[in-house]
Design a protein around this nucleic acid. Structure first.
Lengths: 112, 112
DNA sequence: AATTTGCGTAAGTAAATGCTTACCCATACT
DNA sequence: AGTATGGGTAAGCATTTACTTACGCAAATT
């Protein structure tokens, strides 16, 4: 499997450093070195995270002179949000009704 | 870093197979072999995925005789949902107001 | 023109991931 | 009692991940 196709939003936000980067630039766009100052890892490491976030469409990069400003592009972040949100029915007050729904399904197939 | 502490909800849902397992058992709880029938990978592989999902608190396992029924326990799934949901302001109609918010932050620090 | 600054990229590495096969142990069935 | 079924776990393996250092290059500064 090519490396490109393995990269999706879910994998992108799986890494805690990348989530921190998202949190950091959500409030204010930043260039790469400024982002790096907020972490204890090397600039190339941050650069690689930025590349991944960019390839997944989570951040946009605007080059100004020699600086690259990163800002959030939420389109693809929404994909992950939508997937999880499917299950919001499970943790909201609708839990009771979901259990009824489950039971109904389970009595159809008389398993267990 | 011990293996346990690296495992969180985000990492759990990063794997496409694990997301499919979640989708599969969301509608109806299933034992391990039934889950396995829905995939092209071996039973031990599924067993390991189930273990991870269980350790992250995404699924509950109820043992009945020799069978183990897996069902979704959404508490921790909500953690991921909440994190992403912070940024929903970025993709909903509130984008304009968020940009104003951004500009306000950026004029405070007169960078760039 | 020379140096500094911002940043990409390559190569190397240790650790983690996702799978496999092999084996084992209970519970259920005959 | 013997066999079949459900499923955990270990060992091994290839690949991926998240870093590092080293290097190079273009834009900015002096």
């Amino acid at each position: 499997m090519p490396i490109e196709s393995r990269r999706d939003v879910f994998q992108a936000i799986a890494d805690p450093t990348r989530r921190q980067i998202i949190e950091l630039i959500a409030g204010k766009e930043m260039n790469l070195n400024t982002i790096t100052e907020n972490f204890n890892i090397s600039r190339p490491a941050i650069s690689q995270h930025i590349k991944i976030l960019n390839e997944c469409g989570i951040i946009e990069i605007e080059q100004i002179g020699r600086e690259r400003y990163c800002k959030i592009q939420p389109k693809n972040l929404k994909i992950a949000a939508d997937w999880i949100q499917q299950y919001s029915v499970l943790w909201e007050q609708k839990i009771d009704s979901f259990e009824k729904y489950l039971n109904k399904l389970q009595t159809k197939n008389k398993k267990r």
